[in-house]
Nucleic acid binder design. Sequence first.
DNA 1: CAATAGTCTGACCAACTTTGACCTTTCGCG
DNA 2: CGCGAAAGGTCAAAGTTGGTCAGACTATTG
Lengths: 162, 162
Amino acid sequence: MVRLLEGIILSSLSDFIEKYLKQMLREAAEGMIMIQRRELAEMFECAPSQINYVLDTRFTPDRGYLVETRRGGGGYIRIVRLSFRPGRDFLSVLDETIGDEITARRAEGLLVRLEEESIVTLDEYVFIKTVLDRETRKFPDHYRDRVRASLLKAMLALLVRE
Amino acid sequence: MVRLLEGIILSSLSDFIEKYLKQMLREAAEGMIMIQRRELAEMFECAPSQINYVLDTRFTPDRGYLVETRRGGGGYIRIVRLSFRPGRDFLSVLDETIGDEITARRAEGLLVRLEEESIVTLDEYVFIKTVLDRETRKFPDHYRDRVRASLLKAMLALLVRE
DNA sequence: CAATAGTCTGACCAACTTTGACCTTTCGCG
DNA sequence: CGCGAAAGGTCAAAGTTGGTCAGACTATTG
């Protein structure tokens, strides 16, 4: 970070690129932009790999962005801003509750509570339990809690959406 | 890729040919078109083998297309669009298609097809891709295809249910 | 001011596209 | 039937992107 004159602050190059891309996203009608890595690198006079750094650190799924790329002729980088954004809402509470791992017992308890509170229907409760059981069994013991957490979060996110 | 005017991006030649053929397919009543390779190559001013490349990469069975050809005088290329859901056991077809493991590439192809056939919405497509991306990366390479398969089946089952 | 975390670059890698030389199949004609 | 013309097929090389990663450099923090 560099200070110039009175309080004018120049952030890092990555910050500039991030701001530029987010501005483009705001102006894009479909919540999506397509760029070329080489072109963007030329615009900011930096190494192309710098663009990857910005994408890796600032446009992650956790922050609500999906990045798709293609190499070769006609290659591109597409950044999609999710209409479903992670925030301080019910879902992020669920995410924190579940964490990266969850035992079958804790998952069961959570589901019971969600059903009692009518956040999921009885049908959905049964369905989710069945899927967790069936899919989880395919993995070795020490991965089961992690797979269970991923599955549970994915399914609840779909159900609780919007 | 060529940039023209204000941010309009022209994709590769293969993309053009793909779009052209898909437009023809949409306009064809029987979900099927017949073309001549040489003729199409002349229309796009490219090598005839370029047409094969497009067919091999974009009109695969995974993406829901069947391609039949015939050489010699009166030769042709026929592209048939396969429809996904005829039977009521659609979900088990999906389960079989996905199997116990699925690569990111095949998952992408399948999701594109499901979106094109209006079985999932564009929003759901983006959502599923993001979840797959985010959750899958928490596991070592060796498990990713298996985790991806479990997640994909779980989410599609929830969406397609009812 | 030392330790830690964040940024940036360049050399090397992987994926996708396009072309062209050469091959195989089919049809029509003698 | 044999042959040549008229399709389409295959494959490898060259071209055009974006990806990765270790290490140098910079900023922040205790």
